[in-house]
């Protein structure tokens, strides 16, 4: 029953539902608030999800603005460039995230990429705190490898809800079935060649052979999000849309 327990803001989590960890520590995810000494209450309406293996618990909630947290892969748009950093927008109307001029794979002061305002990069959040500016980087600072991140050239950006972007990023299980319940990309991929990058901040970048196909993929994703398509509905819609191409 714990999987479908719905909490309203201000309600406490019953102590018998808390996972037991060996180290005696709990990891709290979004939507939960710890009041010392030992009260954990919800801050948003949502369903309680518990991962007993990691002793983690969080509230699943569909809406809201993206809140940066360390390790998230995001699609950022350059707003302006300054001496040491680029200022990038992750979500509209929030203060800019900082991307170091040298935070790319294998660059030196002379070979750093020249990005203009409006350019789009795929990056990882390296620092997120409520007191300071968010920082992002386009390479893994531990290994120095790009790991797929970097400037995104060409293509188009589409906005989806952050919760949907998360579903797109959850990936597939061992049998290759999408765990997030989104099969649009897999279905389209059987017929059309395209590149895609999903940002946790609710942005999807798509590039393919033609603008027509790119827009079609983006529209399918947006409609799957807004209209809440199930797996079958997605398959049907993809089939219908590909017939016209």
């Amino acid at each position: 029953m714990a999987a479908t327990m719905v909490l309203l803001p201000g309600e406490e989590i019953p102590t018998d539902l808390l996972p037991k960890s060996k180290k005696g520590t709990l990891t709290l995810g979004p939507g939960l608030h710890h009041t010392p000494p030992s009260t954990i209450s919800a801050t948003t309406p949502g369903t309680l999800q518990v991962d007993h293996r990691k002793a983690a618990l969080w509230l699943e909630h569909a809406g809201g603005r993206y809140q940066p947290s360390v390790g998230d892969l995001v699609i950022a748009q350059i707003h302006h460039s300054s001496v040491e950093t680029y200022s990038c927008a992750l979500t509209p109307h929030t203060s800019f995230a900082l991307l170091g001029q040298l935070a790319f794979e294998g660059v030196s002061k002379k070979t750093r990429p020249q990005l203009k305002a409006g350019d789009v990069v795929y990056a990882r959040v390296s620092k997120a705190s409520k007191w300071e500016d968010v920082e992002i980087e386009c390479f893994n600072s531990a290994t120095g490898k790009a790991e797929g991140m970097g400037p995104l050239k060409g293509g188009m950006l589409f906005d989806v809800r952050p919760a949907f972007a998360r579903r797109l990023m959850i990936g597939t299980d061992k049998e290759g079935i999408s765990k997030g319940g989104v099969v649009v990309l897999e279905e389209v991929g059987e017929k059309v060649k395209f590149e895609v990058a999903v940002g946790r901040n609710g942005r999807v970048w798509v590039d393919s052979g033609s603008v027509r196909e790119t827009v079609l993929i983006g529209q399918l994703l947006r409609r799957a999000d807004e209209e809440g398509w199930g797996v079958e509905a997605q398959r049907k819609a993809v089939k219908k849309a590909l017939r016209d191409v």
Partner: peptide, 11 residues
Amino acid sequence: AQAAIAWREAT
């Protein structure tokens, strides 16, 4: 809240 996790149940 339950509608928001419908996808989780379906998979």
